[in-house]
Design a binder for these strands. Structure first.
Length: 490
RNA sequence: GGGCCGUUAGCUCAAUUGGCAGAGCAACUGACUCUUAAUCAGUAGGUUGGAGGUUCGAUUCCUCCACGGCUCACCA
């Protein structure tokens, strides 16, 4: 409200009149608040009394309990908090006047000596207060805090000030990203940067954001996946590469979908999809242990054990979770599959090929049951225009997806490296596009040309970093793991 | 896009069948030199998301709109 703000503007004026610089350009502290808390944690009141150690710390005032000629403040540097005691006869008169002009949210620097209060709390007995910055807008009320999710996302800066668990989620996110990098770096992978602006969007089945380059007067698309560029690098002899960065998909927004999200894609020459399943098990188990301190985590009230991994073919998963008793023979019968799907109220299109129907059946009956880490492998070829066909069964490809907590976390496959087959797959995608499938893959002649120079056998995988972060921070909304999630304009 | 729920003071929430719009915290004034959700006394703070309708009277009932949450669909 205007009035609250005006009062604080007046206070800043008075602070200036006392002779303080309202916006000083630095403060030299001797300790972070964390160091203070740690260094003096073991000291008794008597030890502190005799030691009289001087400290200078800086931070934001989060609470103030004044009473007449003294008062206590809670000072936070974002990471840690410490109590500050301001007492009239121990401070210069000007500093004590300043104390009465301070508000919750202001930044100050404090010089003083450490002591313990009667209740034993470690506290800085201040002998100097330095004004650092004024907070004009009131912080949320201390007891309930900030809970309105919309304001939390719109004003993430306030959310971070008052909700320590939010800070901890984003610190974990940063650790996850660092650990993913170091896991791959240790194994000889090279991090590369590939274009964000694509003249032909590809590498995934999704709708893109379209933009325009003025000087060249040409349409460009924000990338939906870095895949095709990474494989061009494999052709060029960069045998292990990864790209961890943003991708953009022009689709619905939900608790599991943000229009821009972070994808780790990595490619490894002379390997197949089984190698990547092995690698992924190791990678995610290590990261869960590093981030959560245990192989067993809790997600959405369910225990998830990174010590127990399962691998099922898509068909096995369907048979296992189908409510109706069916056999593998049933899945070869298009009419039977269609009937099953209709019973389950799935959206069936009579033009869909059998493989697409099987994929749909899997999603309908099995996906939600996949809480423990489970690889689903051997996908119908129709769903996977970039994967290598399975030796001995041309209807399937060597592809897997990893499900944890009912969410799709990763997707990997043995890469199709036959340029002739790749051209045919693109052509059949074009047919799907003509049937109205906006997400079907485009033809990419240069990619086929790259494969025509020969790509060694290669396996590649994408890991949804936001989804993985949700899992490891027990967040059920993707917005809780993205600092500034997409919102409609205010 | 569909369904359900929601929007009241800076924040968290009340308001009976449709009958004077309230509390706690935050703020302001005063008291208080070891408090920690400090305490005590007092003051101020509102076009009840917006527009329209029904009614003597609407926070309350109806319609439309905006925004948000959850969920389903699409997707990762």
């Amino acid at each position: 409200m205007e009035q609250l703000e005006q009062i604080r503007v007046q206070k800043l004026k008075q602070i200036r009149e006392l002779g303080y610089d309202p916006y000083p350009n630095t403060y030299r502290y001797t300790h972070t608040i964390g160091q203070v808390v740690k260094d003096f944690a073991e000291k008794t009141a008597e030890q502190l009394e005799h030691g009289k150690q001087k400290v200078r710390v800086a931070g934001r005032i989060l609470a103030n309990r004044p009473f007449g000629k003294a008062g206590f403040m809670a000072l936070s540097d974002g990471e840690d908090q410490v109590q500050v005691y301001a007492k009239k006869d121990q401070l210069p008169e000007r500093d004590f006047q300043l104390y009465h002009l301070l508000d919750i949210g202001d930044f100050i620097g404090v010089e003083g000596t450490m002591f313990r209060t009667r209740t034993g709390e470690l506290t800085i007995y201040s002998n100097e207060i330095t004004f650092l910055a004024k907070c004009f807008l009131p912080l949320p009320e201390k007891w309930h805090g900030l809970t309105d999710v919309e304001i939390r996302y719109r004003r993430r800066y306030v959310d971070l000030v008052v909700n320590p668990e939010v800070r901890s989620v984003f610190i974990k996110r940063s650790v996850i990203i660092r650990e993913l990098r170091s896991f791959l770096d240790e194994r000889g992978y090279l991090e590369v940067e590939t274009p964000m602006l694509h003249p032909i969007f590809g590498g995934a089945l999704a709708k893109p954001f379209k933009t325009h380059h003025n000087a060249l007067d040409m349409p460009l698309y924000l990338r939906i996946a870095p895949e095709l560029y990474l494989k061009r690098l494999i052709v060029g002899g960069l045998n292990r590469v990864y790209d961890m960065n943003r991708i953009f998909r022009n689709e619905g927004i939900s608790t599991r979908h943000n229009p821009e999200f972070t994808m780790l894609e990595f490619y490894q020459a002379y390997s197949n999809y089984t190698d990547l399943m092995d690698l992924t098990e190791k990678m995610l188990t290590e990261i869960a242990e590093k981030v959560c301190g245990s192989r067993v985590i809790t997600y959405d009230d369910q225990p998830i054990d990174f010590g127990k991994w399962t691998r099922l073919t898509m068909k096995e998963a369907i048979l296992k979770f189908s409510p109706e008793k069916i056999t593998e023979e049933t899945l070869k019968d298009r009419a039977a599959v269609e009937r099953l799907l209709k019973q389950l109220h799935a959206d069936v299109d009579s033009r869909m090929p059998l493989g697409t129907l099987i994929g749909l059946l899997f999603e309908t009956v099995a996906e939600a049951h996949l809480v423990q880490p489970t690889f689903i492998y051997d996908y119908p070829i129709e769903l996977s225009p970039l994967s290598k066909a399975k030796a001995g069964d041309p209807s399937l490809v060597e592809r897997f997806e990893l499900y944890i907590g009912g969410m799709e976390i990763a997707n990997g496959y043995s890469e199709l490296n036959d340029p002739v087959d790749q051209r045919e797959r693109f052509l059949s995608q074009l047919q799907a596009r003509e049937r109205g499938d906006e997400e079907a893959h485009q033809m990419d002649e240069d990619y086929i040309r790259a494969l025509s120079y020969a790509m060694p056998p290669t396996a590649g995988e994408g890991i949804g970093v936001d989804r993985l972060t949700m899992l490891l921070t027990n967040s059920t909304s993707i917005r809780d793991v993205i600092l500034f999630p997409h919102l409609r304009p205010e």
